Amino acid sequence: MSISVAVSGASGYAGGEVLRLLASHPEVSIGAITAHNNAGSRLGEVQPHLHSLADRLLEDTTVANLMGHDVVFLALPHGTSAAIARQLPPETLVIDAGADHRLEDSAAWAKFYDSDHAGSWPYGLPELPGQREKLRSARRIAVPGCYPTSALLALAPGFAAGALQADDVVIVSASGTSGAGKTAKVNLIGSEVMGSMSPYGVGGGHRHTPEIEQGLSKAAGVPVTVSFTPTLAPMSRGILATATAKVSPKFRTADGGALLRQIWLDAYEDEPFVHVLPPGQWPSTKSVQGSNHAALQLAFDPHAGRVVVCCAIDNLTKGTAGGAVQCMNLALGLTETAGLNFQGVAP
């Protein structure tokens, strides 16, 4: 018997990407498809690429419409998922693609989101040390933010192995405009974005900073301080994160680069979606577009005593919807890669 799935926020980028993946998933049937402002519209009007679902009507995002499903995906604005999730049965697998349940520190939530903290759920990044087992049989899962997904994949192995120092981590990430959502904004229109890059959330102001620190601190076993700067790139999808950290003294040797590389190779050796590229090949966002894959490369800078790790993901797939479906597969005991066997798209 197939697994019934409801998707909220289906008119947005994240909800649409969840539906794109589920439409090819061999184990699920798609039930309620809901939205807010676009309720009553044909899905094909707002997501014309979803041909097999184009004639489905968008229902209103209410608890009543989401009830009765085995799985509910919440692809809603930050601060709106928790109220709905609280009313869904405990046996329903609820996967929140928003930020409501990612942070464990209520003070950090209040500082960056200025609302009441809804508590934390198991964190949906299976590739983190020990995290996969926590997701098996979970019934509430918080999908990571797209920037934290790339940043944590880039640096967690080094911290888990004790190879990196916790006090001077710098991450600069370039993201496609879809990361800002579908709401019309002047700074995201084509005339402003084409042929231009710009930073935002500079100086520790971006909401994903505490999430990145939370994940790296867990990997390291000590508090990690992160300076995070996001930039907007003239592309629709993708993230390229460049993450650097000081290398522990014992790795600042002539063979330090090889030792560091082996740490990352060992960490991701059996991972189906994370790939450390051969020496000399650096990741690009195009190579992972439309897929649940992450491409990594690292280098040791002996002059600065730092490791530099570059990670490319598709912010809508591995960074959001693909990670959500991967977590659903784990929680339900399905093959982890089910519905996610997409390669990148080129050119």
Rank of each mutant, 00 (worst) to 15 (best):
S4T: 14
V5G: 08
A10R: 04
Y13N: 14
G15V: 14
G16S: 09
R20P: 10
E27V: 04
A32T: 05
T34D: 02
H36P: 10
N38G: 00
N38P: 04
E45I: 00
S52W: 08
L53A: 05
E59L: 14
V63L: 06
H69M: 08
V72C: 02
G79W: 02
L93T: 05
V94G: 06
D105A: 06
A107C: 02
F112S: 00
D114Y: 02
L125I: 06
K134T: 13
S137Q: 13
I141A: 11
I141Q: 07
S150V: 03
L155I: 01
A166R: 06
V170H: 10
S175L: 12
G179H: 06
K185Q: 14
V186P: 01
S196Y: 14
V202S: 15
G204N: 12
T209P: 02
I212L: 07
E213M: 08
A220S: 12
G221K: 09
V222M: 11
P223D: 09
V224A: 08
T225Q: 12
S227M: 09
T229E: 12
P230N: 07
P230T: 12
T231V: 09
S236Q: 14
I239T: 05
P249A: 01
K250D: 15
G256Q: 08
G257S: 11
L260N: 13
L260K: 14
L265W: 07
A267P: 00
V276K: 10
V276M: 12
P279R: 02
Q281W: 00
N292P: 08
H303E: 15
V309M: 11
C310I: 12
D314V: 01
D314L: 03
D314P: 03
N315Q: 10
G319H: 00
T320L: 03
V325I: 05
V325E: 04
L340Q: 07
Q343H: 08
